[in-house]
Simulated assay, not measured.
Amino acid sequence: MRVVSVIDSDATRHEVWGATEGAPHVDRTVDRTVATADAALMDPESGAPPLDGLPRQRTTSLAVPPSAGPAPSPASAPSSSVGAVPSPASAPASSAGPVPVLPSVARSAPRRLPRPWLLLPSPLGTPFTLAYALVLVATSLVAEYADPSFVHVLHQASSTDVAHLMRDPLLVLVASALWVAGGVTSPYALGFLLVLTALERRTGGRRTAGVFLLGHVLATLATEVPVGFAVLVGHLPGSSLHRLDYGISFGVAACVGALAGLLTPWPRCTVLVVFGGSLVADLVEFADPMTDWGHLMALSIGIGMWPVVRRWQRARTSSRPAAAAAASGC
């Protein structure tokens, strides 16, 4: 900012304020009393004007700081100044400079702590898995502490062999899924809790039951129907029609395959490689080839349901905000 003072012939001084060369100037006229006061401040010996930067005692209130702009004269003032907005071109530049803007500190979302109890079934989150697990615990206790001959009769009546499938297919298909081969300490019992809990939390109880039953029924029929045809053509003895076949392993294998489709790539590959590799290893041992083939078929059934279970998961995820809004009364 620079100031140019001009004193005309009638001892009236004009001060011209401007920000830069070429910018519009504001002419301020100070009356004669200011010029007289400045003359009184002259050095009596040398007659030189006072030095720049020394404070001056002004007797007039017409001086306005440069940052505030010129005082509007009555002649040039608009008739109605209410709501008038000064244009950017006529507004004087502020001598204080731009106000520094402090960078905003982004607040990161609080990190969610791991909740391991979600791996197990709960009454509200996974009611189907919890109820089914209680039934399996009860039948396992019966198989553990009841009379062995009585337990054998129950297992034989619940077996999905060819003879029972031809006589009471629906009854034995449901009854065979009420037992855990090997009891609650078997690997499939632990897999049941973890896999069905995770799948039910992502798709819902009825859909999880559908995946389990689909794998259980289709894998059972895929292994028992060939046995019936082999006995019919004479490749297997007649005793193969009454083999014991019960348990939850086919349904659990189907749920493992379906759950893998809802995981991210690395966990998905890990689950398929570990679980599928164990099934192939059992098949190579050739201890129970029909059951081992059934496990691989059930896993393939679950993998084939990836498009369906992914659609179920998207539908369940999109319905949660609406359900929360309805519960809150919005």
Rank of each mutant, 00 (worst) to 15 (best):
V231N: 04
L118I: 05
L154I: 10
A39S: 14
C269Y: 14
T59K: 14
V137L: 12
A146D: 12
T203G: 01
L262N: 04
I301K: 01
P127D: 02
S87V: 05
T12A: 12
R112Q: 09
H14S: 11
P237R: 04
G191N: 07
A19T: 09
T29Q: 15
L199S: 00
A230W: 06
D161C: 11
Q57M: 08
P65M: 14
T139V: 02
T208S: 03
L119W: 09
V135E: 07
V271S: 03
C330M: 06
E45G: 01
A35D: 08
S81N: 14
R167I: 09
A181D: 02
P110I: 00
L136E: 03
G329L: 01
T317P: 00
H235K: 13
A75Y: 01
W306K: 04
A287E: 13
L196A: 03
A219P: 04
T203D: 01
S80N: 15
W179K: 04
M305E: 02
V271L: 10
P70A: 13
R56E: 06
V252W: 01
S76F: 09
G276E: 07
A323R: 08
G191R: 05
W266D: 08
A68I: 10
D168M: 05
G215F: 03
R115S: 14
G97K: 07
D31S: 09
A77I: 07
A189P: 02
H216K: 00
T12N: 12
S87G: 11
S122L: 06
P100A: 06
M290G: 13
W293A: 13
A143D: 05
T60D: 15
P44D: 08
M305D: 00
A109N: 09
G210N: 04
A48T: 09
P321F: 01
A143T: 03
V308K: 00
V227T: 12
V211L: 06
G204Q: 07
V211I: 13
Y188G: 02
V271I: 07
M166A: 14
V82W: 07
R201L: 14
H14T: 12
R56A: 10
P74V: 11
G210F: 02
A258T: 01
T291R: 06
D245Q: 07
V82R: 11
R58H: 05
V137K: 03
W266E: 10
S328H: 03
E15S: 06
P98R: 11
G329K: 02
G294S: 07
M1P: 12
G18S: 15
R243K: 10
S149V: 05
I7D: 15
V271A: 07
A23F: 07
E224G: 02
D52Y: 07
A91K: 13
R32E: 08
W306P: 00
A77H: 09
A181H: 02
L41N: 13
S300C: 11
R112E: 09
T20I: 06
R316L: 05
V273T: 08
C269E: 15
T223E: 04
P321E: 01
T291I: 05
